[in-house]
Write a protein that binds this DNA or RNA. Structure first.
Lengths: 150, 150
DNA sequence: TATTGTTATACTCTATAACTATA
DNA sequence: TATAGTTATAGAGTATAACAATA
């Protein structure tokens, strides 16, 4: 990112501050960039972290179930899950009576990775939430959950 | 996106619903996909629309100023602005006393495109905001503006 | 030296469609 | 026929770094 020098005349953002989509884009982009920096040493992207959490909370879950839970297409999850298994963080087990499906579980390595990673992410979340009061942050998350149907 | 069949046991989302980054990702992704569908006939992406709005509100603005206003790198804006000028929606004018810079203005075509596009986007915003009461939507945008430092 | 804008490159996230294997 | 998962492909969005032209 550039650090531009301050301008005498501030730019008029026009209708953008009144558009939810625009505000979400900006907020999401900022968080994603900081997430990547903050967790670089773990080598796990934001999306991969979400998958690890879901597998941890639902041992034996299948990829299709994860797709539903994460609101993503299976074709999005499949390569991500492949990286996680290749790196030895997730194990694929056979599912009785359905040889198409795969039961997903964290490996010991994956289980060991998550606690310190979660700590780092908690710091990142706190830092990025600085502009908000604690109560505002709670309210924001409540509204986003409702918007997302969660 | 897949339409998965309903599962007897709902998936446990673990810590994800308590993470602002995760909630922002889901909300932003949903809005971006619907934006793309809703405005397909205009052939303008979400990011390009934001640039058009900024140029409209700040005729004569330079690319560097836009980068600051949109919180994006100039290398992100440069190709996007090139597409807009090639499509005849934005015009580049010379800046007196600085031949490096370019003063950006909407072309008549760009100015004509924006009103119906804005109407379409307003519908899209309303539709995606359905899960929220009007007052909740206002509150959500207020909190996002504060989070974004706007 | 510093700044404006361009270009080359790379990475993340996401989807659709076509496919294989299995049910 | 339908489903689970993979693969090929595409597109949006973003950044860093090196560069040419200009200040």
């Amino acid at each position: 990112m550039d650090t531009e020098r301050l301008r005498p005349e501030p730019i008029d953002l026009g209708p953008l501050p009144g558009l939810l989509g625009h505000l979400l884009r900006r907020a999401h982009t900022r968080m994603l960039l900081d997430f990547t920096e903050s967790t670089a040493e773990f080598g796990v992207t934001s999306g991969e972290f979400a998958l690890l959490c879901l597998v941890e909370a639902n041992p034996g879950v299948t990829l299709g179930q994860l797709a539903t839970a994460a609101a993503l297409d299976k074709s999005t999850l499949s390569p991500a899950m492949q990286r996680l298994t290749e790196r030895g963080l997730v194990e694929r087990h056979a599912v009785p009576h359905d040889r198409r499906a795969q039961a997903l579980r964290l490996s010991p390595g994956g289980a060991a990775l998550l606690p310190p990673l979660k700590d780092r992410i908690a710091e990142h979340e706190t830092r990025l939430s600085q502009p908000l009061e604690a109560s505002e942050r709670e309210m924001l998350m409540r509204l986003l959950r409702k918007l997302n149907g969660l």
